[in-house]
């Protein structure tokens, strides 16, 4: 959104009074609009360091706010509130409450890397978006995003089998996000292709669904990966534990365990 089209005062900070008299002057109604003054005092100075400690966030300190990332952003074109440049600014200045206004948007980055391509300072904004989405989840500010659930199912299958089976990923995802298995558009797709596919093809996909495709001799590699995943997760938690955040809640521990290959 071009800045001149943006309302600089948020609607909730504008008030009118139905019945108010100040020093004998009636200031009721719309002719006298009040703007709530706002003083920002709740800085979270640890936020930048914490996000920089998560994978992808390493280069956030390089940003000089040119805005090339937002300008080139795929998601921004569809959802104008998706604004990597602004979020990087908020993180670097520690304006946590301001960042939390957009907490349900940040995971929507589609990793197209247009920002990374355009960035003149090698900030890797795509990585920063992922790190920020991680941070929000680990701090308990947001529930696990559908994207994170998908990534976990995917990674679990790789750790276990070495390979992915599309149908299984799809089914598990719909199940874990409590969506009906037969979406209307999925039904349409199945109907479209079922009519012209040879029986052999159907049998083949049924076969790979039941007998998950796997990499021969994967067991040790899978176990090594599982060890590594546990190690990095402890590392990430430690990095965040070192900082102080007023919103970190212990009642809502981040669900980050990968329960594959157990």
């Amino acid at each position: 959104m071009p800045i001149h089209e943006k309302s600089l005062i948020r609607p909730e900070n504008i008030t009118t009074h139905d019945d108010l008299v100040i020093e004998g002057v009636d200031v009721s109604g719309h002719w006298s609009t009040f703007i709530e003054t706002r003083v920002i005092a709740d800085y979270n100075e640890a936020m930048e360091e914490e996000i920089a400690a998560l994978p992808g966030g390493e280069n956030i300190h390089r940003c000089w706010q040119c805005g090339s990332c937002t300008n080139s952003c795929t998601v921004h074109a569809i959802e104008p509130r998706f604004n990597p440049r602004y979020w990087i600014y908020l993180i670097r200045t520690g304006m946590e409450s301001e960042l939390l206004r957009d907490k349900d948007l940040i995971w929507q980055c589609v990793s197209c890397n247009k920002c990374t391509y355009a960035c003149p300072r090698d900030v890797v904004p795509e990585g920063v978006m992922k790190a920020t989405a991680h941070w929000l989840e680990m701090k308990g500010h947001v529930p696990e995003s559908p994207s994170m659930i998908f990534d976990k199912i995917f990674t679990e299958q790789i750790v276990e089998h070495g390979r992915i089976e599309d149908t299984k990923v799809l089914m598990q995802f719909l199940k874990r996000t409590n969506q009906p298995l037969m979406q209307d558009w999925l039904k349409q797709i199945v109907m479209n292709i079922a009519a012209r596919l040879p029986v052999k093809w159907g049998l083949k996909s049924a076969w790979s669904f039941v007998f998950h495709p796997r990499t021969r001799g994967w067991k040790k590699a899978g176990a090594a990966l599982q060890d590594y995943i546990i190690e990095v997760e402890q590392h990430h938690k430690a990095a965040l534990g070192a900082g102080t955040s007023n919103a970190a809640s212990n009642d809502n521990p981040p669900q980050r365990k990968l329960h594959a290959a157990e």
Binding site: H134, M148, D151, I158
Partner: peptide, 8 residues
């Protein structure tokens, strides 16, 4: 997907 768990 995997890079979002850890890029390494």
């Amino acid at each position: 997907e995997v890079k979002n768990i850890d890029p390494k």
